[in-house]
């Protein structure tokens, strides 16, 4: 049992930013102590049991009409991503062209949900999207920007907020922020919490609306399932619209057990408050077969109403082409090859 005299707690601010959800669940007098007690009071996770359940879900056999539906839905849930130091306006234009028209050989192919780029590439993405820019729920494509000193998050809060505000001002619809894993692992839950609340506020546009906030936990660095459950809960309490597994820059990135665990957190939040929070596994999902396993896990854990762009996303770059190959196969009955899908 941690008492509030312990070093990290004493060093952290006692009172936290009054995020609406946290106030609702933890009570009006929002303190780091209350947050800590809530997170440490979450039931433990048995790693063997969790992985066994994920493996069980992975054995579902999705065939024929279910598979065809799944493949189309996967495309509509993809955040097509490029996050390289070498990203240029040309590369972003090429990515956007792929997002708008994933399979030139079949006009019936759905579009992806969003393109995901670094903050300074937002204007390039918006310009390239043109009329296709908009809400994925309307069949249009959003622009998501990673922010807050992505991927490490090692910068001052001032820098992180400026990073976020810049991207929002440039027109980003969605912000993918990283949590301060160092603070989390040091037990400074209050710092992590306050940062998310502040970044959420930085997502506010001049018209009063907010860019959607995805909170990246970087589960590969949190390392234990107990940490992932606590961080998921923390990110939800602080106001995240989505919780996201990984930056894609750290191994392991998204895994099925970790995603299952995050979905359980989202399910429990819904059970408690009736509110729906999104989940985004990112990094390492390359094959259609794997992506279908994620859909199964979503449907059987939180329900298939979560299979919507505003509640579930895949952060991926190479997944799209594998889905397209599978899609061509289900339509034509035979496999083509990598030269029959376009690269971005």
């Amino acid at each position: 049992m941690t008492i509030d005299k312990s070093a990290p707690a004493a060093a952290a601010p006692a009172t936290l930013a009054p995020a609406e959800r946290a106030v609702q669940v933890l009570g009006g007098d929002l303190t780091e102590k209350a947050l800590r007690q809530n997170l440490e009071g979450l039931p433990g996770v048995d790693a063997v049991g969790l992985e066994q359940r994920a493996a069980g879900l992975a054995t579902r056999s999705i065939k024929t009409s279910s598979k065809a539906w799944a493949l189309d839905r996967i495309i509509r849930l993809i955040d097509l991503t490029t996050l390289e130091g070498a990203d240029t306006p040309g590369k972003v234009r090429s990515l956007v062209a792929k997002a708008v028209n994933p399979d030139p050989s079949d006009a019936a192919t759905p579009r992806v949900a969003a393109v995901c780029v670094y903050g300074d590439k937002v204007p390039d993405a918006i310009e390239a999207l043109g009329a296709a820019h908009g809400d994925p729920d309307d069949g249009l494509i959003s622009v998501a920007a990673v922010a807050t000193a992505f991927p490490s998050g090692r910068a001052s809060l001032r820098v992180k907020l400026a990073d976020t505000a810049d991207a929002v001002a440039a027109g980003a619809d969605e912000i993918d922020m990283v949590i301060d894993r160092g603070a989390f692992l040091a037990g400074r839950y209050g710092k992590v919490f306050d940062e998310i609340v502040a970044v959420k506020e930085a997502c506010r546009r001049t018209d009063g609306s907010y860019a959607s906030l995805k909170v990246i936990l970087e589960t590969g660095e949190l390392n234990t399932y107990d940490n992932v459950r606590r961080a998921s809960w923390l990110a939800i309490l602080a106001g995240g619209d989505f919780i996201k597994t990984s930056t894609g820059k750290v191994q392991p990135a998204a895994t099925l057990p970790v995603t299952l665990l995050m979905l359980e957190a989202v399910r429990d939040w819904h059970r408690l408050t009736g509110e729906k929070v999104g989940v985004k596994p990112a990094g390492g999902i390359r094959a259609s077969k794997d992506a279908i396993r994620y859909l199964v896990t979503v449907a059987e854990t939180v329900g298939e109403e979560w299979l919507q762009p505003h509640l579930f996303r895949f952060g991926a770059s190479s997944l799209l082409n594998d889905v397209l190959l599978q899609r061509q196969k289900t339509i034509t009955g035979h496999y083509s090859g990598p030269d029959y899908v376009t690269i971005d």
């Binding site: 579902r60 056999s61 999705i62 065939k63 024929t64 009409s65 279910s66 598979k67 539906w69 799944a70 839905r73 509509r76 994925p136 729920d137 069949g139 859909l295 449907a299 059987e300 298939e304 109403e305 299979l307 919507q308 762009p309 505003h310």
Partner: peptide, 18 residues
């Protein structure tokens, strides 16, 4: 938020896989 064509049980009603 509205849904794009909700699955309406279509997905969870997995097609037979005998």
């Amino acid at each position: 938020m509205k849904d794009i064509e909700p699955a309406d049980g279509r997905f969870l009603e997995y097609a037979p896989a005998p």
